[in-house]
């Protein structure tokens, strides 16, 4: 292992320019993936913001005893899909309407009887905010005899569903395409390293080194370059993120950066690409010489 590590360092020392080029190529390839990833993460964040607004409102028949509603509320809370349940009585509904609909404030004030019904507002847990789950829960709530009507904006939820699916597919396709291009570029740079050391490989073979032994330093070299490239890509992505967030024109102050686990995944991806690229390039070279 000591020998493999030493040979890897030697490779960096011997061809600093080529090594720097490889690391930069890996970094920029991963950066394009990262940039796309940032868009995807932020798109998902925005969708999550929209999802948060998914709410089922069940209007309660006038005169329903509060005990019945309390029991039903407890029952609904125990649904596996449900995150929170809130009961809004008639008075609160009126108060809220007065606050939210300022233009009708006078009309509400002159009312002798409160026309607004009480309601139960149900929010679902993350992962259950798609059209089919929402519809299922709404149907179950509609089954309570005291429930007059249930609303959840079916069309809006369905549209959100389509948007989410589309974003998922487009994200996957573009992400894979970017990753594919990154793998090709990285493969080419590693191949250059292998060709640059062809003479050394030949000598190693002639003095009786096994192919497994010859591969060792190249694999570590590839992994190290992948890791360095990954770290550099994270740095560039962070810089790009700051530039976008500070930009007044784009108004993207609410942008979010990758979570730590995403960064770790990106670095692992860099290492995997470096390793894979080296394995393929050295393997091909060893087969052909």
């Amino acid at each position: 292992m000591r020998l493999v590590t030493r040979e890897t360092f030697r490779s960096f020392q011997r061809a600093p320019l080529l090594s720097a080029l490889s690391v930069t190529a890996i970094a920029f390839s991963l950066f394009t993936v990262g940039l796309f990833g940032l868009v995807a993460v932020n798109l998902r964040e925005s969708l999550r913001g929209l999802e948060d607004r998914v709410e089922i409102v069940a209007f309660v028949l006038r005169g329903t005893p509060i005990e019945t509603i309390t029991l039903a509320t407890q029952d609904i809370t125990s649904f596996p899909e449900v995150a929170t349940v809130a009961y809004v009585n008639e008075d609160e509904a009126l108060k809220r309407a007065q606050q939210e609909m300022v233009e009708f404030r006078d009309a509400y004030r002159d009312l002798r009887v409160n026309p607004l019904p009480a309601s139960i507002e149900v929010r679902l847990k993350e992962g259950f905010r798609d059209a089919s789950h929402v519809a299922q829960v709404a149907e179950r709530i509609e089954g309570f005899p005291f429930v007059d009507d249930v609303r959840y904006g079916r069309e809006w939820v369905e549209r959100l569903d389509r948007l989410r699916n589309l974003a998922g597919v487009v994200g996957l396709v573009i992400g894979l395409a970017f990753a594919g291009v990154a793998i090709v570029i990285i493969g080419v740079t590693i191949r250059m390293t292998v060709l640059q050391r062809a003479r050394e490989i030949r000598i190693m073979r002639l003095v009786g080194a096994t192919d497994g032994f010859i591969r060792g330093p190249f694999l570590l070299d590839g992994a190290a370059k992948g890791l360095l490239g990954g770290l550099l890509a994270v740095g560039i992505s962070w810089a790009a993120f700051l530039v976008f967030r500070r930009s007044d024109v784009l108004a993207l102050q609410s942008l979010v950066f990758f979570e730590t686990r995403h960064i770790a995944l990106g670095l692992l991806f860099g290492i995997a690409i470096g390793l894979g690229g080296s394995l393929v390039s050295v393997g091909r070279h060893l087969r052909n010489v």
Binding site: L3, R199, E200, I203, V207, G208, F213
Partner: peptide, 23 residues
């Protein structure tokens, strides 16, 4: 067939190292 970036002794040692000789 010598490696230009290694000294004479490193070139010779290389043949032992790559065959897994005791360091």
């Amino acid at each position: 067939g010598l490696l230009q970036d290694r000294t004479a002794e490193e070139n010779v040692a290389f043949a032992l190292e790559v065959t897994g000789a005791r360091l």
